[in-house]
């Protein structure tokens, strides 16, 4: 069994163990309602995490995703408040805004060779400011709450059978992107760009184009999740999504995509998002102070990364020992 497969099995085992513990500790945990809400929360992070995983595979990082969520919500709020344009007409515009942010990030990263995190951190600041700037204001200039009444728009927060629509969209997106990553040439280009950009460029891959594409997709995913978020909350606030990049990073890291690039897949990210959502749900169900949530999320990132490095070293040592034993046996058999 490969190292990654074993890691994933351990993760699923942990997930089930935590689930079992929570269902014993809190009787309402295993209710269908709660499980569906949990999956819906997971999908909210998950859709963003799918795009983020691609960025991470190219060895980049996108800190602007939270602010993209905010700006998308504000764009939709403006359309809903001041115009009568139907939802299906302006939602593509909102999604396009996310892509545009990716374009901006990609431009500064590829053209000027600036570090990814500082470019996306700067665009995060710019977008968070813009979101407040274009927020719907009342007569005194204070940000006012938008109550969304458009039935088509609110439909995005709805359910099909027991499942929320966002959960279905997330799973479809995950399957499509996983297929794209593993079975298409463009997917292979993403891995190659992250593993060794120079080698990728020398073998004829347009790495700049790949980087543009992943940042645009990341922005698109953040915008998409923002529309579901505001539809479910029935309101849009300029604070939406700010700080949520830590949740996404935590989910992806739990899923086993490293920061070094060239490795990772979507299944890990799916498990990671469910894992994170379950922990957050557990904190809520057990009635622990909500202030502990950032400690847990920040802590998880550090602990998982440290354990991963240790685990990788351990597995490599194990493999080396096994190989040595095998050669010794072969020598003995030969003699």
């Amino acid at each position: 069994m490969s190292i990654t497969a074993l890691r994933r099995l351990i993760l699923i085992g942990l997930l089930l163990a935590i689930g079992l513990g929570l269902s014993l500790a809190s009787p309402s945990f295993l209710k269908l309602d709660n499980l569906m809400t949990l999956l819906q929360e997971a999908s909210q992070t998950g859709i963003v995490a799918v795009g983020f995983t691609l960025v991470l595979i190219t060895a980049g990082i996108d800190m602007s995703i939270g602010a993209v969520i905010a700006i998308t919500a504000m764009i939709c709020a403006n359309f809903l408040t001041y115009t009568h344009i139907p939802a299906f007409a302006f939602i593509p515009v909102a999604l396009g805004a996310g892509c545009l942010v990716g374009l901006f990030n990609g431009f500064f990263i590829t053209r000027f060779k600036l570090p990814e995190f500082i470019v996306t951190l700067a665009s995060r600041g710019i977008l968070a400011g813009l979101a407040l700037l274009i927020a719907v204001k009342d007569a005194d200039g204070f940000v006012s709450n938008v109550f969304i009444q458009d039935p088509v728009y609110l439909g995005f927060g709805g359910t099909v059978g027991p499942f929320y629509i966002i959960t279905i969209v997330f799973l479809v997106l995950a399957v499509l992107v996983q297929f794209f990553l593993k079975r298409t040439r463009s997917g292979t280009n993403i891995y190659a760009t992250g593993a060794n950009p120079t080698a990728a460029r020398l073998s004829g891959i347009n790495t700049d184009k790949t980087i543009f594409a992943v940042y645009m997709f990341s922005g698109f995913c953040a915008s998409l999740s923002s529309i579901f978020l505001s539809a479910r909350m029935m309101t849009a606030m300029p604070e939406f999504g700010i700080g949520s990049e830590m949740d996404v990073i935590a989910a992806v890291v739990i899923g086993g995509t490293p920061f070094t690039g060239g490795i990772g897949d979507i299944w890990g990210t799916v498990i990671g998002t469910v894992f994170l959502a379950m922990i957050k749900n557990g904190i809520l169900k057990l009635g622990i102070s909500p202030y502990i949530q950032p400690i847990v999320i920040g802590g998880i990132i550090v602990v998982v990364v440290v354990v991963d490095v240790w685990y990788k070293g351990f597995a490599e040592r194990l493999a080396r020992n096994r190989a040595r034993r095998r050669t010794a046996e072969q020598d003995r058999a030969a003699a």
């Binding site: 990082i61 830590m246 920061f259 949530q293 950032p294 920040g298």
Partner: peptide, 19 residues
């Protein structure tokens, strides 16, 4: 552990805020 500094310190920012 070879983790990018901005990830480690961003995580630290998050948990320190929580504390």
């Amino acid at each position: 552990f070879g983790v990018p500094a901005f990830i480690v310190t961003m995580a630290a920012k998050t948990y320190l805020f929580g504390i």
